[in-house]
Structures are given as structure tokens and as C-alpha cells.
Amino acid sequence: MQPEWWALLHGFLATVFLMSFSGSFVELIATNLPSLRRLKIGLSVMAVSSWAILATGTYAYIFYRAPVAESARSRILAGPAPWVHSVLMELKEFTGAFVPVIALLAVLLVFSWNNRLITEARLRRVLGVVMWAAMLWTLLAYGLGAFITKTASI
């Protein structure tokens, strides 16, 4: 598969992640037994997609940083805005790596607390904070990725 397709898959999976966050968050607001089941599915989709985003992104990163003049990194560093790589890309690649850990934590919480999420609002609030942390760090990586791709695509 061409590097462009990997990058496309990477971005598509990020969209799946953001959509599953929206669905999961709605289920968290008014949790009952059926919505708890959907919450478990939604958070599992978030976790699986975040690990897939990391895998596809890391594979696409090989082409991005290839030590040839045509690679995106070489073009950015040789261009008028080398800080796009040295500051933004550095930040993007690592903040993106934090997200699968947070998403995995959210899955552990929903399966560990299970029915207690229906009766205890404080646990729902904690899970909400964890989900928002995953969302915010994803948005940071997503936004930086879009900006970097606009500067030089792989």
C-alpha cells in the first residue's frame, strides 16, 4: 500500500475515534443498562481505533522522516518554516502516543465499575474526565497533523 493510503487510513481512523467519543459521551450522560452496554462498545471502539491510529501513524512516519530530499521532513526543514517539524511534529507524534493509554484506561474503568456507573454519578464524572482527556489530546494531535500535512504531505 502506498504511503498516502496509510496517511488516509490514519486520518480516517482518527475520525472514527472522534465519532465513537461522541456516541460514548452521550451514553454516559444518562446511563442505564442498555446504554451501559453501548458505552462499553463505544469505549472499546475508541481504544481499538486509537491503537490502530498509532500503528498506521507510526508506519506512515517512516515515509515522513525518510532520509531523502523528497521526504516531507526534509522538505519542511529545507523550507521557510522548519519549526513545523522541530516543534509541531515533535509535539504531535508524542501527544498522539498518549491517547491509546488513556483510551485503554477508559475501557478498564467501564468494565471494572460496570453497574456502579448507573448508580454512582461521581464515577460517571471520573470516566467523563478520562474520556475528555483522551479527546483533548486527540484533538491536539489531529489539529497539528492537519497543519503539518497542509505544509508538506508524505
Binding site: S86, V87, E90, L91, F94, T95, F98, W137, L140
Partner: peptide, 8 residues
């Protein structure tokens, strides 16, 4: 962790 990976 985020601050530590911010280049400055």
C-alpha cells in the same frame, strides 16, 4: 509529559 515533548 506534554510539556517535556514541547521542543522549547
Amino acid at each position: 509529559g506534554t510539556l517535556m515533548v514541547f521542543a522549547p
